[in-house]
Design a protein around this nucleic acid. Structure first.
Lengths: 198, 198
DNA sequence: CACTCTCGGTGACTTAGTCACTGAGAGTTT
DNA sequence: AAACTCTCAGTGACTAAGTCACCGAGAGTG
């Protein structure tokens, strides 16, 4: 039984791409389950630099929303729709009721939490222990499409760095002939060579 | 009703300071509740650099142990007793039973999870968005004792940096007259001045 | 066609991390 | 007490990463 089952009483709502769903310091009202699309959860520093904390994928709930509602806290980051979204929204009382009465539902929510903790720890390890080149190359090799449609700025905030630094590294990799840069896209030409950098 | 209540059937066991409790890739067998002392959970890179992920405080369980047991995964980090510990150990079947039957217990475990997710996100934001000086000064100002009994290496892994870098920053702060360095200890002399660096 | 906006490139500089080595001091052994 | 070992910190020289200020190309708009 997937999480979506428990949300099926609530209608699917559409959210356009680019919508800012939650702001730093904002209040969470309801739980939402993502049916389709992708939500980016990130933090922004005073001088405008950003770092992506995680992405919410279809079939998942936003863990941070859950911790806010359970703890009565303000949302500590920014949430933006990376693409057009379909979501189902569940009111707090129904969530609490399910947590009380359904072991299956609890299990799903707990799994969501566990996976998120694992991914956050991975992020910390990467930031503190890996070089920028390693993070960059891993990011590139993980992308499903080729060419990859993404700006240097996007990559920088994904891997916790600055745009200029990412640009320079990419330029160097292009000079080696391992990829090809274009405005808003990166084509990987030699995955094997890139793999050897990790 | 605190978490400790649910563990009271299980005897308090002593663990000497410095014991390595869990290794990266090791298997978790049981839940443990910390009664007294402190456990450091950290990751280590290939070249020996370390980064502290979090500390387990008295009255808390180790969230990572929980996620391992729930997900049947290997422990993704290192766990070391920072001081002598008193712990109570609960077998998996009893934990599962409590999760099933006690809303209070579930609530406690969830709170533990939520707090940990919050602290991990904070750590990511610090690593990616703050300067080393900010992280260092915040660390110093947060310590309860003065002088602070800690090595430069310890600080470096707390704030995700390298020993030499921390040493140089501390030397500079000492030259300003804001603190006094000694082997294994740092005495803060001017908290106000340090505050202005944040 | 002019205007604007996003994206990326670049030079000069600062900050952070690495590597290799040094020496001081504390504790232990002989 | 002298020699030994270990931990901790200091340092110079270097590389990597991040910042700041600016430029120019190209896409989209009116």
């Amino acid at each position: 039984m997937s999480l979506e089952h428990y949300f099926s009483d609530y209608p699917v709502q559409q959210v356009p791409a680019g919508t800012q769903i939650l702001h730093q310091g904002g209040e969470c009202q309801n739980y939402f389950l993502l049916v389709a699309g992708s939500v980016k959860i990130f933090a922004r520093s005073a001088n405008g630099r950003e770092v992506v904390l995680y992405h919410v994928a279809p079939g998942k709930i936003c863990v941070l929303t859950t911790t806010c509602l359970l703890g009565g806290k303000r949302f500590p980051a920014e949430a933006v729709a990376e693409s057009a979204l379909s979501v189902r929204i569940m009111p707090k009382h129904r969530f609490d009721e399910l947590m009380e009465n359904s072991a299956q539902f609890r299990r799903q929510i707990f799994d969501n939490f566990s996976q998120r903790i694992g991914s956050l720890i991975e992020t910390i390890e990467k930031l503190a222990l890996e070089t920028l080149e390693q993070r960059l190359v891993k990011y590139l090799l993980l992308q499903p499409s080729n060419p990859i449609e993404v700006t240097h700025q996007d990559i920088a905030s994904e891997i916790g760095s600055a745009r200029e630094v990412v640009s320079r590294h990419l330029k160097r990799l292009e000079a080696q002939g391992w990829l090809k840069l274009d405005r808003g896209s990166i084509e990987l030409l030699n995955r094997t060579a890139l793999h050897h950098l990790i």
